[in-house]
Amino acid sequence: MFESVAKRLFGLQGGQLNEFWNQYRQSKLALAGLVVILCYVILAISASQIAPYNPFVPSYDILQQPSSSHLLGTSEVGNDVLSQVIYGSRVSLIVGFVAASVSLLIGTAFGLISGYYGGIIDVVITRITDIFLVIPTLPLMIIMAAILGARLSNVILVVGLLGWPSTSRIVRSQTLSIRERPFIENARTIGSSERHIIFRHILPNVMTLIFANAVLVVNYAIISEAILSFLGLGDVSQISWGIMLYFAFRSGALSSGAWWYVFPPGLCLVSLVLSFAFVGRALDAIFNPKLRKIQ
């Protein structure tokens, strides 16, 4: 199945897929990143089976040090920190992937339209993109989240609606270049419709770029969710690593020496984001041969 998806989306064939994998394997960091991401995905999917406690249920054992019954100790209301960290991976990954999809969809659509049609449409979209790039995202995100209210869907919406400009720029510039290639002129001469040219000729040709960029957008989304949650704008009925840090900070966990409450979610965030960055860098090097090291 994976192969047929790869074929449809990127025009890759079996042989090319092997070649891709062989190149990807060259980077140890990229492999490690992939493994870490897969671990978190498995953790998120099977959270209810793996977690030793129900992370939402408080107990009288508050802020206990790690012990054999609570491997990562407990929170200020007696929740099991390990279980919370495991459940937290769900929200981080969901927000990461869904918000990034929203961003990529908007960015790709804008990039294709402005790059292909050019003229006044291009000017308008490019200016809008510039505005979004120039405005400091964080304050805007805080304001939007505060207005919309602290719900997980709103967090996704806010992050997704603000993360598209970089994708739009990349897709636009590549579309500008592909639009002028002879095979597009050929398709136009044959009489193919604009829709057909955009979706069947240009999109597959920019797909690799979108893919390499996607990883970075996912990263941005995960970090943004953590920031919003840490600032108290997240959905507190859910558990995410950002929300754990928010409660840890509010209960003064760090000043009272409860390191087991602060470090696990923080380290999880760092390792996940770092893994995505490694994967992204490897993809970039594969799709953009200029970055490859000379053997």
Partner: peptide
Amino acid sequence: GAMNALDPVR
């Protein structure tokens, strides 16, 4: 220029 008149990914 037949070399470039075909879409490389199809």
